[in-house]
Computed example of a mutant assay.
Amino acid sequence: MLNKLFHIRDQVAVVTGGGTGLGKHMAEALAASGCHVAICSRKVENCRQTAENIQKQYNIHAKGYQCFVQNEESVRQVITEVINDFGKIDILINNSGTTWGAAVEDMPLEAWQKVIDVNITGTFLMSKEAGKHMIKQQYGKIINIGSVAGLKAESPEILNATGYSVSKAAIHHFTKELARKWAKHNIHVNAIAPGFFHTKMTDYTLRQKGDEIKKRNPLGKIGDTDSLKALVLFFASPASNYVTGQIVAIDGGSSL
């Protein structure tokens, strides 16, 4: 019974920003469960390398694509290519993101705009184009990657990246909007709000403030990727068929 609940074998997932970091871990989790995986980001070599590795390791079909998620034509092209190569899209993980650390009074407009364009517009465009296909097939699972930074206002001593935090709060509400609008199409839309994990984006902060961050965390630790993988599989599989529009923090209790 449990195997059926988490069964995603031979489904097709698109993972943005899946060549490195948390996206790579999520792509691996899907592949390990027998799901075919299309990985896309602006750095195509990372995507191709990760796709090659998981294809060999898990005997599934995987392919890497270059995509600039903030560019509508680029997104359209990638979604078209994925459908041509794989035949369908069952799961979309909107993971691509960027940040900019600066006090609000010092943040350049172009830095703010870059964060908004990648994090919010990119999620919108990928959801829109993949969603058209999901609406036709009357099925889909969309998983947006938000952040605990979008659930609460963090102290500037720990995180001073207002553009990033605001963009993730927007992702959380976009998740609810999309879930409400597309429920009639049997499309489930949920979000994961990670706390601090070891990634390229967080490495500098964790090197400088890791001890303080762990001290403030109720469980006293930094995130582990096994917990993230488990939550991704829940949202991607039939186990979550009565769940939509939810934002689940995976943060050791830091958002409490």
Results as ranks from 00 to 15, higher is better:
1 M>I: 07
2 L>C: 00
4 K>N: 15
7 H>R: 13
11 Q>W: 05
19 G>S: 02
21 G>R: 00
23 G>W: 06
27 A>L: 04
28 E>P: 04
28 E>I: 12
31 A>D: 09
38 A>M: 11
42 R>Q: 05
44 V>N: 05
44 V>R: 01
45 E>V: 12
51 A>E: 00
58 Y>A: 12
60 I>F: 11
60 I>D: 07
61 H>S: 15
63 K>P: 09
63 K>G: 07
64 G>R: 10
67 C>G: 04
68 F>C: 10
69 V>N: 03
71 N>A: 04
72 E>M: 09
72 E>Q: 14
75 V>E: 00
76 R>C: 04
77 Q>A: 13
78 V>Q: 03
78 V>R: 04
79 I>L: 09
79 I>K: 01
80 T>I: 08
80 T>A: 11
83 I>N: 01
84 N>K: 14
84 N>H: 01
86 F>S: 15
86 F>L: 14
87 G>K: 13
87 G>E: 13
89 I>Y: 10
92 L>D: 02
94 N>H: 08
97 G>V: 00
100 W>F: 15
100 W>I: 08
100 W>Y: 15
101 G>V: 12
101 G>H: 11
103 A>N: 06
103 A>D: 11
109 L>H: 03
117 D>L: 08
117 D>S: 11
118 V>Y: 05
119 N>T: 06
120 I>K: 08
122 G>A: 01
123 T>S: 01
124 F>L: 00
126 M>K: 02
128 K>G: 08
129 E>N: 09
129 E>G: 02
130 A>C: 15
132 K>Q: 10
133 H>S: 07
133 H>E: 13
136 K>G: 04
138 Q>E: 15
138 Q>H: 15
139 Y>I: 09
139 Y>S: 15
140 G>R: 12
140 G>I: 14
141 K>T: 13
147 S>W: 14
147 S>C: 14
150 G>V: 14
151 L>V: 08
152 K>H: 08
155 S>P: 08
156 P>F: 10
157 E>K: 09
158 I>H: 04
159 L>G: 05
161 A>G: 06
162 T>I: 10
162 T>K: 08
166 V>G: 04
169 A>L: 01
169 A>G: 15
172 H>K: 03
172 H>W: 10
173 H>V: 14
173 H>K: 05
173 H>F: 10
178 L>R: 10
179 A>Q: 13
179 A>L: 14
188 H>N: 05
188 H>K: 08
189 V>F: 01
191 A>V: 06
191 A>C: 07
192 I>P: 10
192 I>C: 12
192 I>M: 13
193 A>N: 11
193 A>L: 08
199 T>V: 15
201 M>V: 08
202 T>H: 06
202 T>W: 06
205 T>W: 00
205 T>E: 03
207 R>I: 07
208 Q>S: 01
208 Q>L: 11
211 D>G: 09
212 E>N: 00
214 K>T: 07
214 K>D: 00
214 K>L: 01
214 K>M: 09
217 N>D: 07
219 L>E: 05
219 L>H: 07
220 G>P: 06
221 K>M: 12
224 D>M: 10
226 D>S: 15
227 S>W: 12
231 L>Y: 05
232 V>T: 13
233 L>S: 08
234 F>M: 01
237 S>Q: 09
241 N>E: 05
242 Y>P: 03
243 V>P: 04
245 G>Q: 00
246 Q>W: 01
246 Q>D: 02
248 V>T: 03
250 I>T: 06
250 I>D: 04
252 G>E: 07
252 G>N: 05
255 S>W: 06
255 S>P: 03
256 L>A: 02
